[in-house]
């Protein structure tokens, strides 16, 4: 079949992007509409209705806690190569919520531009990231698994729409030191990186992961 095999997935991606009747844009996991661009989220952030519905769907707030105010600031168009980022600050009615939801968050949108979006959609990257954050980093207790033994940003919202491939993620803004390939390598950091990967791999060892349901990959 050769490269003709690329046509169906490409057409599928285009259909999902532009086919209006399919464009329900309802999130698979929270059943809340996904404001998948900065402009859409800005509109939804004029009041707290959307963010409260989204966070309720994610079950990340304690009973009685709600978001009372939202501020959204762009990161700039080139902040991420395969994503657009924004800063979102949330104010809660219960500042001492035992689930300690983060106040400073990063919003991750899909990239602008057809070519980037096509690459992402062909290999289901946004869906994968949402699934990983939603099921593995937040919901271990539902699968009777102990928590993942490594740090990862706390997720507030991660959802995608299978009909349109649109996705959106809201996660904790990390205040720790970020690894940086531009800087001179640090042996202690490299060792910590190796140990961290060993922990992740040992935790998920084996190829049967019914709770993960990751999209198929060539490997």
């Amino acid at each position: 079949m050769g490269f003709i095999g690329l046509l169906p997935p490409i057409l599928n991606v285009i259909r999902k992007m532009y086919c209006k009747p399919c464009n329900s844009n309802i999130g698979e996991m929270t059943e809340v509409t996904i404001p998948h661009t900065y402009k859409l989220l800005e509109k939804k952030s004029k009041d707290t209705a959307w963010i409260n519905a989204a966070l309720k769907g994610m079950k990340v707030l304690s009973e009685g806690n709600t978001v009372t105010a939202v501020t959204l600031k762009p990161f700039g168009p080139s902040a991420g190569y395969y994503s657009e980022l924004a800063l979102m600050t949330l104010t809660y009615s219960m500042p001492n919520d035992p689930l300690s939801p983060p106040t400073d968050t990063i919003v991750k949108f899909l990239p602008i531009g057809f070519d980037k979006r096509l690459i992402l959609d062909l290999v289901d990257l946004p869906k994968t990231e949402c699934i990983m954050y939603y099921h593995l980093l937040r919901n271990h207790s539902e699968h009777e698994l102990p928590p993942l033994p490594i740090m990862s940003p706390k997720i507030l919202y991660a959802d995608y729409c299978p009909a349109t491939n649109n996705a959106l993620m809201i996660m904790e803004k990390i205040n720790f030191t970020l690894g940086d390939q531009k800087k001179a390598p640090d042996l202690d950091q490299a060792k910590a990186q190796m140990l961290c990967l060993a922990k992740v791999h040992a935790y998920y060892w084996g190829d049967k992961h019914p709770m993960v349901s990751l999209p198929p990959s060539p490997l």
Binding site: Y82, L120, L125, P126, T128, E129, I131, M132, Y133, L137, I150, M151, S152, P153, M171, I174, F176, T177, L178, G179, D180, Q181, P185, D188, Q189, A190, K191, A192, Q193, L195, C196, L197, V200, D207, H209, V212, L214, S217, L219
Partner: peptide, 30 residues
């Protein structure tokens, strides 16, 4: 899992603990 997608927290004993973000390419693989 390049070092750019890793973050580090210094623990009380001075050692480093690493965490991971940007899970978009996660998969079941060797």
């Amino acid at each position: 899992a390049r070092i750019d997608n890793v973050f580090f927290k210094t623990l009380e004993d001075g050692s480093l603990e690493a965490g991971l973000f940007d899970w978009a390419q996660a998969m079941v693989a060797p």
